[in-house]
Structures are given as C-alpha cells and as structure tokens.
Amino acid sequence: MMTVDFKINGKSVSISAEPDTPLLWVIREHLKLTGTKYGCGAGMCGACTVHINGRSARSCRAQLQDMAGKSVTTIEGLSAASDHPLQKAWIAEQTPQCGYCQSGQIMQAADLLQKNPHPTRDEIVRHMDGNICRCGTYPRIVRAIERAVKEG
C-alpha cells in the first residue's frame, strides 16, 4: 500500500492503494468517477483516455505510484456544464451509439484541439486512430471534431 496525492478535475485527492494500481481503477472505483471506461486494460482501445498534466493518456497503463503531484482531468472535469465545444458538437452530430467509448473519444479529441486548433482530416484520423468505436461512429466523430473546430 502507498498513499499518493494528486489532483483530479482540479481537486486534491489522497489515494491509498497498491503502488501498481492502474489509474483507471483509482478513478473509477476509488473515486467513483465512472465516465472513464475499462475496455482492454492494455492501451489498445482508448476507452480509458484521460488527460494527465494536460495531455491525453491511457489511464489503464498509468499507475498510482507515478501520479504524485500530477493533475488528472476526466470527462467529468472537461467542462463545467457539459458544454465543451466538442461535447456540444458530439450532440449536434448525434455521434454516440452505445456510448461506452465516447468519453475516451472526446478526451482524445480535446487533446488534439489543444495542440492543433485547426486539424486537417488526416490529422484527425491519425490522432484518433488509437480509439476504437465498435459501433462504428467514426464518420460522426470526424464530423463532430470538424464542427467543434468551426463553431469553437
């Protein structure tokens, strides 16, 4: 067991768990922020994507012992009123189907727009290609990102 202090969605937390506990389970089951999803546990699907110090990361591959002093943002902390331009665009394009992967998709897309506010279609695809959507909402994810770019 070890106790680690870090920030999540702007709030300081202190978590006691095994050092190698995946950040994913710390977020979901210790902190009960269940918007971040478990998909593969191996960094291959992107359902668990969060931001660590402002950059997208797979929370299933990050461990508690590496989190000291870091700042984590989950889908719950992306915007105050679910009104981030991507969230609005996601609704406008009626993007989600089952919805399970979409928190990860949105967090991954938010990372892109922070670095590159006007991505090309190819840049979008390259950046998003690690996030699987089994329902096949990819065309609408692309459209939603392009809409968010336009409508800000």
């Binding site: 918007g35 992306l78 915007s79 609704i91 949105i106």
Partner: peptide, 19 residues
C-alpha cells in the same frame, strides 16, 4: 429526432453495468 440517451453519453453520466 435527437436521441434522448445522447446527452448522457458525452459527459460520462450515462450509467452502464460497469458503473
């Protein structure tokens, strides 16, 4: 018609069995 479940699926509030 806008699907009623979609707003819940863009901010993490939709509850799946996993949650």
């Amino acid at each position: 018609v806008a699907r009623r479940d979609i707003p819940l699926k863009v901010d993490g509030s939709a509850k799946f069995g996993m949650d």
